[in-house]
Write a protein that binds this DNA or RNA. Structure first.
Lengths: 116, 116
DNA sequence: ATTATAGTTGAACAGTTGTTCAATTGTCAA
DNA sequence: TTGACAATTGAACAACTGTTCAACTATAAT
């Protein structure tokens, strides 16, 4: 049995019992919040936004965002780990591209929201 | 003029110049990342998920999520500041509700994404 | 082979975040 | 008015995050 951490009793126990079975399980919950965590950084949003326009290599992205290659590379790694972008080596350069159009849809929908 | 922080020259200057004018401005960028930051926490996602099912007071939410009222209240404040929920006092209790159906749509779309 | 360029990596640092704890406010019931 | 309960608040703490810096790998050109 689960350890009780709440410090009170329910006011409307019927509502709580009705809602409880519809709550997401922990696995889905953490996947969801991890996804939003990845999106929750302005550098990474710029990278996704830029890559929607065109494939680009790290150096180009670094000039575009006006940041060091190192900083860009670190953030691209986060996006790669989250499977939001994919990398392809061409000669001396590594070209990055969006790996999931779903993400851009969410980005645009969030844009509508913040601009309401 | 902007201070140059990137530590290299562009490889494909034509692509960079093509993409640059389509980049979001800083204001929109920070609003977007702030929005995703708010969504990027499992406690807050649970709260939004629960409130989609039914209005609830802090005590009920606290039992439902198995957390202290204080922790829940702190997170509700974050959601309130971000205008994602609204509060209404009824007697001794404060009832919270979603203030924007847009958000639930984004949540469901992200859910589809993580469950691909 | 040597040199230059593109990109990655890990450690370190400051800044931020979420929960806990204790104190406080506000409301209802006796 | 007193006591009990609902919710909020601020400080404190540990855990996490993003950029910088320096060192490193890998590829291409001479």
């Amino acid at each position: 049995m689960e350890i009780k951490k709440s410090d009170c009793e329910a006011i409307n126990i019927d509502i709580v019992n009705k809602v409880k079975p519809n709550m997401p399980d922990m696995k889905v919950l953490y996947e969801l919040s991890d996804f939003f965590k990845v999106m929750g950084d302005s550098t990474r949003i710029q990278l996704l936004w830029a890559l929607e326009e065109s494939e680009m290599c790290v150096g180009d992205l670094s000039v575009l965002l006006n940041m060091t290659k190192s900083a860009v590379s670190h953030q691209l790694k986060v996006l790669r780990t989250a499977k939001l972008v994919r990398a392809q080596k061409k000669g001396k350069n590594v070209y990055y591209a969006l790996s999931d159009r779903h993400v851009y849809t969410i980005l645009k929908m969030a844009l509508e929201h913040v601009c309401e």
